[in-house]
Design a protein around this nucleic acid. Structure first.
Lengths: 336, 336
DNA sequence: CGGCCGTGGGATATCGTTTACCCTGCCTCG
DNA sequence: CGAGGCAGGGTAAACGATATCCCACGGCCG
């Protein structure tokens, strides 16, 4: 069995409390005993038992991270940023995922709380309101990320999706595109915001938002391929496309090339999300980066502040600024 | 503050022990009190305090997972498989990473042990032998994955890299390639094993292993591009290439196309690793899948067995069978 | 009728720390 | 010279559960 403070105390004929004080540099302990304790601790390779410590301090120095799927690089990067932000403060991140299943999400959240995490960061699937009530009742601080949930009063950190749509579309316009289509994402707030940014950019430049240039896609490359196919059959090809996200854009690019058109010469393509293989594609893809690192970092900082400050701090919303990443798929020069 | 067993016990005028027994379905408790306790627990929304329970049972039902980097999809997928395997048994996985830094690796491992994980799964960077000694001393079961460490007696689960080299090369031969090159990886055991599989395949089919067809690359797409460039300049182009991994293969493909050659018509290309975007490339890439799911699952199963069985179970080595994934980059039909 | 057993439940110690006090000298200072 | 303060420790009670025994009672059996 592992070494405990008791072992050290008995070896040295001091009390356990003395050992504890030395190890935490608390209270008044003479330099002599301090050294003796430290030396013996090192010899025995003593390690704090965090379970015991947590029981009495009511702090585990652990934050829970609840994600739909950490094999998606988007979430993996957020997780990494969170872990890196809390580590210097002595916290660990424990990561759980729930596969977009609200029931599993509740179960995992409660498991994390039963393990007494000091706080939670959640990219929630669904407004299972009871979950949030439960957290509030137990006064566990939590931060929502990426997906705001209507009707839940909570701090939130996420990218400004409207800005993503605006940035990408604006860039296409700056590249000289006149007929700009949008492959729109699934029926959720994120897709709606990106669409609305697309519309604002068109409006700003007095381009007409033609209905036939707005095509339903989803979130995968297959849906992008199909949507693009429909768009190309329906009439004259657009000269620019903003796609809901990178996979959709990749599918669209394939459809464009299959149709014998060239990127960006005939059609410029922009995506969103900056998946990390966007630049090893046949034509490297212009996209809008969501700055996962900033998202994770800000969320973690906010959470730590809430944890340390006891008080049920007011719900803050932090919007991360997206950044345009220009690659070949839109580089046609303003001269076009 | 959260609800405890004491709250339930006082409300019902029974002892804490009785409550505890009901909640764990242990001991003899009458159906009547059983129901009363359960009802009250539900009303109060009682949740086991795992910190307290763990202190006395000496079990946290938590396994640690120590990875170089979980934003690499390879490790993320392993992590997911591990989490999924242990979850039904009531365990949680807590994931840590160490960025290939042996010092950080040791620190994180000890932090996990201080948090009393019941076992560890490690894709270790380096043979900091002291780390493994420490784990053995504290009798924390652990399993190495992906990277065997020479001189450390421990259970291991990983893919058979020699088989990867053999499978890929063999496939190229079956596709009719006669002049097969290899872009070799960095100087480690994994690359060496893949190379040796490549050689065995050539030998088996009595093809000559020309020295000029063996080119040093590294692990990134840039290195693949450059290595391929050198190879093409040095003499007649090979008609098949097996690359250390997928990124290298992607770089190589770009170099091949830049040289005006066609894939797979002029050169067939095979990679290894099956990164999840291999099939959205300009030419979908034939590769060898490492079966991350099996790796994670087997490692988790082995670990759980070790945990449950107390006894310092003997070090087992499990080799995961890789699987060939054929895509366009090698599809030329045996007729060539 | 005494002994034994099963049922239903409780008392108490324990897990390894921290926390909140308390105690004992000795020194200083008015 | 007595009060007060501080340095350097110690005692005891948590923290929230589980483990290990123990007890009372009733029924049943020989």
């Amino acid at each position: 069995m592992p070494v405990t403070m008791r072992d050290i105390a008995e070896d040295l004929n001091v009390s356990i409390v003395t050992v504890s004080k030395v190890l935490r540099s608390q209270g008044n302990i003479s330099e002599a005993t301090r050294r003796r304790v430290l030396r013996r601790a090192k010899q025995l390779n003593y390690q704090t038992n965090w379970v015991a410590r947590s029981l009495v301090t009511r702090r585990t120095y652990t934050v829970g991270l609840l994600l739909p799927d950490f094999t998606h690089s988007f979430f993996a990067e957020i997780a990494k940023a969170v872990a890196e932000t809390v580590r210097p403060q002595g916290y660990h991140a424990v990561i759980s995922y729930f596969e977009e299943d609200p029931e599993l999400e509740r179960i995992e959240a409660e498991a994390l709380m039963a393990r007494q995490v000091d706080g939670l960061i959640i990219a929630s699937a669904q407004p299972e309101k009871s979950l949030f009530d439960g957290m509030r009742k137990r006064k566990v601080p939590f931060i929502l990320i990426d997906r705001p949930i209507a009707g839940v009063r909570a701090s939130f950190v996420g990218v400004d999706n409207e800005a993503i749509g605006f940035l990408a579309t604006n860039h296409l316009i700056a590249q000289g595109c006149k007929l700009i289509a949008h492959l729109r994402g699934p029926d959720n707030g994120i897709a709606a915001a990106r669409l609305s940014g697309y519309r604002r950019a068109l409006r700003t430049h007095k381009l007409e938002p033609l209905a036939r240039l707005l095509v339903d896609a989803s979130f995968g490359d297959r849906s992008g391929y199909e949507a693009m196919g429909r768009l190309l059959q329906a009439g004259p090809a657009p000269d620019g496309i903003f796609c809901y996200n990178d996979p959709v854009a990749i599918g669209a690019m394939r459809a464009i090339m299959d149709a014998g058109l060239r990127i960006p010469h005939d059609v410029a393509v922009a995506g969103a999300g900056n998946v990390h293989y966007s630049d090893v594609l046949a034509v490297p893809l212009t996209t809008v980066d969501q700055d996962t690192v900033a998202t994770g970092r800000r969320a973690a900082e906010l959470l730590l502040r809430n944890i340390e400050s006891e008080r049920p701090s007011s719900a803050r919303k932090v919007w991360i600024e997206p950044k345009l990443v220009v690659r070949e798929s839109t580089e046609r020069g303003a001269a076009f």
